[in-house]
Amino acid sequence: MLRLKMYPARNGDAFLVDASGSHILIDAGFASTFNDHIAPDLRQLAHAGGQLDLLVCTHIDGDHIGGLLEFISSNGAPGARSIVEVKEVWHNSLRSLPSPPGPPDSASDRQVLEAIRRRGFLLPPASGPTANPISAKQGSSLAKRLKQHDYLWNASDGTTSMTSGRPPHTLPNGVQVRLIGPTVARLEELRTWWILEMRRLSYKGGAAVDPVVEDAYEMVCAYTRQPAPAMVKTISAASTKRLNEVYVPDISPTNGSSIATLIESEGKRLLFLGDAWAEDIVVELKRLHGDGGPHLFDAIKVSHHGSIHNTSVDLLSLIDAPIFLVSSNGSIHHHPDYEVLAEIVDRPATFERKIYFNYETPASTRLRAHVSRSGAKFQVDVVQDGWIHV
Results as ranks from 00 to 15, higher is better:
Asn11Gln: 13
Asn11Cys: 13
Gly12Trp: 01
Asp13Gln: 12
His23Leu: 08
Ile24Asp: 01
Leu25Pro: 07
Ile26Ala: 08
Asp27Met: 05
Ala39Ile: 01
Leu42Ala: 03
Asp53Tyr: 06
Cys57Gln: 06
Gly62Asn: 06
Leu69Pro: 01
Ile72Gly: 00
Pro78Arg: 15
Trp90Thr: 02
His91Arg: 04
Asn92Arg: 03
Leu97Val: 14
Pro100Ser: 11
Gly102Leu: 10
Pro104Tyr: 10
Ser106Gln: 08
Ser106Phe: 09
Ser106Gly: 14
Gln111Val: 04
Gln111Phe: 09
Leu123Asp: 15
Pro124Thr: 13
Pro125Thr: 09
Pro129Val: 01
Asn132Asp: 15
Pro133Phe: 10
Ser141Tyr: 03
Ser141Pro: 03
Gln148Glu: 15
Asp150Glu: 14
Tyr151Gln: 06
Leu152Ile: 14
Ala155Glu: 14
Ala155Asp: 11
Ser156Phe: 13
Asp157Lys: 08
Ser161Ala: 15
Pro172Cys: 09
Val177Leu: 07
Pro182Ile: 01
Thr183Asn: 00
Thr192Pro: 04
Trp194Ser: 03
Glu197Pro: 03
Arg199Gln: 15
Arg199Ile: 14
Ser202Glu: 11
Gly205Ile: 05
Gly206Ile: 00
Ala208Thr: 08
Val213Asp: 00
Glu214Met: 15
Met219Cys: 05
Val232Gly: 12
Lys233Thr: 09
Thr240Met: 11
Glu245Val: 06
Pro253Cys: 10
Gly256Ile: 02
Ser257Trp: 07
Ser257Val: 09
Leu270Val: 11
Ala276Met: 09
Val283Ala: 10
Phe297Gln: 04
Phe297Val: 02
Asp298Phe: 08
Ile300Glu: 05
Leu316Val: 13
Leu325Glu: 08
Ser328Trp: 04
His333Val: 09
His335Pro: 00
Pro336Ala: 06
Asp337Ile: 05
Tyr338His: 10
Arg353Gly: 00
Tyr356Phe: 15
Tyr356Gly: 01
Pro362Asp: 05
Pro362Leu: 04
Ala363Asn: 06
Ser372Gln: 03
Ser372Ala: 12
Ala376His: 02
Phe378Lys: 03
Trp387His: 10
